[in-house]
Design a protein around this nucleic acid. Sequence first.
DNA 1: TGGTGATTGTGAAAGATGTGACAACTTCTA
DNA 2: TAGAAGTTGTCACATCTTTCACAATCACCA
Lengths: 205, 205
Amino acid sequence: MPSSIPDIVISRLPVYLRALERLSQEGQEVTSSHELGKRLGISSAQIRKDLSHFGGFGKQGTGYRIAYLREQLRQVLNVERDWEVALVGAGDLGNAVARYRGFSNRGFHIACVFDSSTDKIGKSIAEFLIQPLDTMHTIIAERGIKIAMVAVPAESAQSVADTLIAAGVRAILNYAPINLNVPDNVHVQYIDPVIHLQRMTYYLE
Amino acid sequence: MPSSIPDIVISRLPVYLRALERLSQEGQEVTSSHELGKRLGISSAQIRKDLSHFGGFGKQGTGYRIAYLREQLRQVLNVERDWEVALVGAGDLGNAVARYRGFSNRGFHIACVFDSSTDKIGKSIAEFLIQPLDTMHTIIAERGIKIAMVAVPAESAQSVADTLIAAGVRAILNYAPINLNVPDNVHVQYIDPVIHLQRMTYYLE
DNA sequence: TGGTGATTGTGAAAGATGTGACAACTTCTA
DNA sequence: TAGAAGTTGTCACATCTTTCACAATCACCA
């Protein structure tokens, strides 16, 4: 009955996990909901309540053992395994995503890169060979890839998403500045820097 | 009394604006809360209610004139003017951000680029000269820049943010995978692709 | 001109989310 | 060993957010 846990709680767990990894790097072994909350700008009660959905990870009087809680969150979030991710689009943005070093050790690695432009097909970004869009369905279906990142122009994003979904992808990270229409069993997250900037200008001046 | 409007409402306005711009591009002149909601996966009631915080932009029986509503949202969001944005960090990520073509016409342009590495200082990305971090405070303060994007390693992000804030920046878009501690009058938005991916893996399998 | 179908803006109700407060427990110290 | 200080997990409550439902209005057409 995992569906009974609110989305909004799930959405905070990766943030907790990231903070724990950082604390761990800094050599700390134990933390408390209060310390974590102070770092993240979240109330300690909320952190305790969020975590309590998945079991009691802490110890009264002491707090949380960082290594243990980190491991538990990884399990809950399903990122103990390493997920293969397909990248679609090899323009500037796709290039940057392909070169990004931050995926490793956090549960993901890029498995293949696709583009439609004949200029780019056959060339490489970082260590990845750029493959033609026509082969995407086959490759993704065969390898059983479930996650994709879309870094194509807004105009092509919906049709790319449709193809991905038909091939079996169930989670899409969309960098294109457009909303995608997808079936209920497919998850989408959006990254559009302008949207984030516009969320702040309202408060300026 | 603009503070009485919930943050969560503000955070949806840029999404509405983006959809309106798209509809406009497609040649449409009028839309309804129902159509917009269908596109965005949001209920029509929510869209109407959100918009009603700022006045009555629509007409009963007809819907919303797209050009007009778009203009009104731009005003509300404070993106009729063009904001200067500072970019800190000229590594792979900073490079991609600097080259990103999507800022223009949506209220923003990059005004200056900073990095600490002596290798990079003096060189250019796209049309921007990379300037040394030591000059950042002066330049940002003099030009009155209020918005910055941070694309430096996690280790340096907090100190960069501190410098930015001291120089007058009031809105930070942080690409570094770390939480920033900032005063109440400073706004921060985060972009970390791994966080977004981890928000979806929970639901896979 | 009057009737039909569409759509907004909004108050009230329902539902979701966050906070406060505390018993229960742990560790530390004297 | 006993008391003090710290911390969790949780329940009840408060607050925030979304949905519902409908009067009011508009455009169109016969």
